[in-house]
Simulated scan of single mutants.
Amino acid sequence: MTMRLTAKTVAGVAMCAALMSAGCQAGIDTPVAAPDSGSAPVPAAVPQAEVLQAVQAAADLRDLPANITTDELLATSGDYAEQWSIEGCEPALAQTRLDDIGPCTLGDTAGDRTMVLIGDSAASMWHGALDLIGKRNGWRVIALTKSNCGPAALTYYQWQLERAYTECDDWQDWRMEIIGQEKAEIVVMAGFFDGGNQGPGRDTTPRVWRDALVKTIAELPEGTQAFLLGNIPRPAESPSECVASNPADLTRCAVPAAEALPDQAGWSGAAELTGQTYVDVDPWFCTEVCPAVIADQLVYSGKYHLTAEYARYLSGSLEEIMVPALTAPR
């Protein structure tokens, strides 16, 4: 655990005051461990119909559920890597490949069928869902994710380095090699698209994104099935901070869907052009509004990521869509 005297600490202090928790400690990170690959019971899938009912009910939720702790609110107040990364499987900016994909291997690690997850941190945040899907269906899951290195075949801009992210170009080549070597039958693609993926002065339009996704799909081995996960909603402020400030009226944290839902045309367009599967995630988050708490769980980590718990909760919804591919004969 690390102590950070940052904006997170300040936010934590504000949340502690809002919740009037005498035991609150601001600024403490609790890393999320990699999914347990041991013999722990695998949770049953929550049916998509139940998820949709929970989303509907959450629109009117006012009081903070008793099971949501101050520590959870602190941990999910920002987009912290501890919340979505896989321990031992988060390549540094300069890395263009991994020498060992063992830490990135989830699901049924002894399974004889393989799926691969590719994309940036907005793909990595789904690893808990795919881990459960793999365990329930006997599939090995390999996460080949790298921050700021999305699934679309583009040269991305690295904002920290303030230059074209050429290391991502090399990573994209390497991950395609691994997909072939591991004989992946399914590839799940997810990533952050906001129009600025290629950097200043370059408008990454939905059409540019679509065409780059099509290029990635064309490079997959013949017969590989791709699932394209649309982007999650984007609230204007950290939902957890809003929840901490309004524990008796969570409706204040339910953002209008028209303001939060992103443009999914690039994702759906690529799936249509290639005959692959677009996964419309919007109904798993929003009705007319997008609540911050659904099924007694915090939905967002910061503004741009899912919490690990909510990703796992959605595993059944995603699994229902993937069933034909999961059960198809080889």
Rank of each mutant, 00 (worst) to 15 (best):
C168G: 07
A7D: 09
M1Y: 09
D131M: 07
D296Q: 03
A260W: 04
S39K: 11
P91C: 14
S315P: 01
L228I: 15
L52F: 06
S77G: 11
D120A: 07
P329Q: 11
R234M: 05
A26M: 05
R207Q: 15
A152M: 09
S121G: 14
T287P: 09
D194F: 04
N137F: 12
D203L: 15
K8I: 05
E177N: 10
P283Y: 13
V279P: 01
N197V: 03
A271V: 07
R113A: 13
Q95N: 14
M115C: 03
R140E: 07
P31V: 08
Q25R: 14
P47A: 10
V299D: 07
A26H: 01
Y165Q: 11
A254F: 06
L306K: 08
G119F: 11
A254W: 03
V293D: 07
R202I: 13
Y278M: 08
D249Q: 12
A212R: 00
D169H: 06
A260K: 03
I321A: 14
L326M: 14
Y310M: 12
P256L: 06
V255A: 04
T216M: 01
M322I: 14
V214G: 02
G302L: 09
L74N: 13
A143M: 04
I178Y: 01
L220T: 01
V13P: 01
E72N: 11
V299W: 01
R140K: 15
L144C: 08
L73W: 08
W284M: 10
A265F: 02
E288P: 02
A244M: 05
L93T: 13
L261V: 15
W174I: 05
Y278A: 12
S21L: 06
L132M: 08
T6A: 11
G138E: 15
A212Y: 00
V46L: 05
S301F: 06
M20E: 10
G195P: 11
N246T: 05
R136P: 09
A49I: 05
M176E: 08
A328G: 12
L306D: 06
E50V: 12
A295S: 10
M115Q: 10
D63C: 00
S245A: 14
A110R: 15
E162C: 06
Y157K: 08
V243W: 03
E319N: 10
G12S: 10
T251G: 03
C24Y: 00
V46C: 06
C253R: 09
S245M: 01
T307A: 02
C104L: 13
D249H: 11
T204A: 07
D296M: 00
P239F: 01
D280W: 07
A248E: 14
Y304P: 00
Q297G: 14
A34S: 15
L250G: 02
A271C: 06
A66Y: 00
L117I: 09
L228R: 01
A218E: 10
V281Y: 05
I142W: 00
G316V: 03
A49F: 03
G27D: 01
A94G: 06
V281R: 08
A22V: 13
E219D: 13
M125S: 10
Q25L: 14
L61S: 04
A226L: 04
A40P: 04
D170W: 06
A123F: 05
N67C: 02
A33H: 13
T76K: 12
